[in-house]
Design a binder for these strands. Sequence first.
DNA 1: AAAATTTTCGAAAACGCTTTCGTAATTTTT
DNA 2: AAAAATTACGAAAGCGTTTTCGAAAATTTT
Lengths: 343, 343
Amino acid sequence: MSKLTLKDIAAHFKVSISTVSKAINDSHEISQKLKAKIQKFAQENHYKPNKVAINLRNRSTRNIGVVIPNILNYFFVQVLYGIEQVANNRGYNIISCTSNQSIEKEAKTLELLSYGSVDGLIISSVATESQIKNHAEGMKELVDSQIPIAMFDRVTDLIDCDKVIVDDFEAGYKATKYFLDTGCQTIAIVTPIDHTEISRLRTEGYRKALKERNIPFDEKLILPVGIDDDLEFLLSFILNDNQIDGILAFDEITTVKVMTIVKARGYQVPNDISIIGFTNGQLSKYVTPSLTMVSQHGAYIGETVASLLINRLENKEVSEPFETRIVKTSLIVRDSTRKIPMD
Amino acid sequence: MSKLTLKDIAAHFKVSISTVSKAINDSHEISQKLKAKIQKFAQENHYKPNKVAINLRNRSTRNIGVVIPNILNYFFVQVLYGIEQVANNRGYNIISCTSNQSIEKEAKTLELLSYGSVDGLIISSVATESQIKNHAEGMKELVDSQIPIAMFDRVTDLIDCDKVIVDDFEAGYKATKYFLDTGCQTIAIVTPIDHTEISRLRTEGYRKALKERNIPFDEKLILPVGIDDDLEFLLSFILNDNQIDGILAFDEITTVKVMTIVKARGYQVPNDISIIGFTNGQLSKYVTPSLTMVSQHGAYIGETVASLLINRLENKEVSEPFETRIVKTSLIVRDSTRKIPMD
DNA sequence: AAAATTTTCGAAAACGCTTTCGTAATTTTT
DNA sequence: AAAAATTACGAAAGCGTTTTCGAAAATTTT
């Protein structure tokens, strides 16, 4: 009834457990006849070695924990997809957990996983720098727990580990430059991830592009939006008070919403107002007009971060210095921006 | 350097391992003084009980394996989300694996997981009935392996377990009826999941609705599309040869594509051609016109299937008969269908 | 045929933990 | 003060494997 173990087989043949173990692993120490008998029996009775026991003996689980802020966000799903590809190829399973933007849940999850269910962790933290400092005990413990970690996208200097990040500065710069090159002058930013390093970097890139054209930076054009905020209401201030001709939004769903609102207020996209957004997911291609987006190459990021982690797991002796890979973004030009004038 | 174990602590205090174990678990068998000392030491040195060892002893992992066809499909992500909610609440972690529509990978994954990494499995199989029969050995072994299973959406009679399915028959019926009630007469079906039971049931519902209005069923109006097929090309035949005024598509991305193609060919949606699709995901709300969709309540399905499985895991003695829950769909009416005439 | 070698198997330890049970030491009860 | 009860700890078994080492049995070599 319950699962078949080596012991059961041993009892059945009246031999020792070690003999059965060797027979099943086809060791030369066991005679052909006996091996054949045992192997046949094991096969017929669906013997499966107990992985937990093997894990205990090997002191490894071949599991990798992945903690992401939100599984309903297409970017993270893409990364997860990439992680799974290489992990499975290299014989690891993924234990994925979402923190749902909750720092408490993230901390709890990390603690749980660090109890030995996984060989390593891949994290994109919901916490901001300051929050990490507050929850420093938890994070500190995690690092102390010696479990190899790799981070991506939402990383922090407070943790020393391999990292894969997006070149968000350049992304902000490139997007802004594209606005300027297509004749836009007054560009607003809508960020649902204010207070994150990512948001800061993109904005820095934006400022650099403006500066190159001697356009003064205007704080009022940066619009942070909370998760429950009324986007239409907030956006109306910016649209009313300024002569906006470009909007840069920091995630896909926000970009689509912004576009819908702008259209509803009678603006033409892209002629009156151009729009560029972050994360080239499933939405942006099919809305009308289709949206020009910054692709962060999520799957590639996932593959990279998984490779980094697994390499480290499998070369425990050679402790190379931690590595930070920066992946460039691409601008996928569609119909929410004007064409670059040919001359 | 390596992880702290009970043995290390025992050595440090020159007591036995069992004493340390009891002290850390705050057993009354240990004196307050000693407990205090040991607990303090454990805390300061970040002692974490080794979960693998505990799992071995308890003969349980508190992991649930989830195998879904495609993580980039929003319906499955929603289900996964629902599963994770209840699983985490009840103290389980999720090991998620995607089969990427590959039967081989699905079989391999299931075999891997059945080796004892998980206490139970939640499956939505990519395999069709006939394929399961071919791969029957694998599936049979899985069932033989005694590991509790729950299936959802893509289920099969060949496996006896708890199931959560969508009322696809009724969904097909309701959608078709809505077409008819809004004046559509000639309704095509576009199915990217032909040969699945789900597709068959939806089509049955469609036929029932037609029959009620004495509209003959026309095989030519059913358009199966493969994953790499040129949808526009295939669709053109149907559009050219018939006076279509309604199209029912069986997944979200296909629905959006159909709408785009139909619009591009100069038809008005919904006036010339109405469109209803399956899976109320992120896309359908934001495309133009927004799409009337059949919501399958993915998160709810996930919650339900996880509850069923965990209940079974935790009541091993009382082996209740397997249960099949049928969840009703809802029609989310938007702008790709005409209004129901008021009288 | 004796010696040397090889083959074939089993005992035991180890992975890290929990728990039962036994026992010495301490405290309480009579 | 002796008996009874309680407290405080340790030994050992067990969860299911793998692996090292020892030893008996079979085979080969002299």
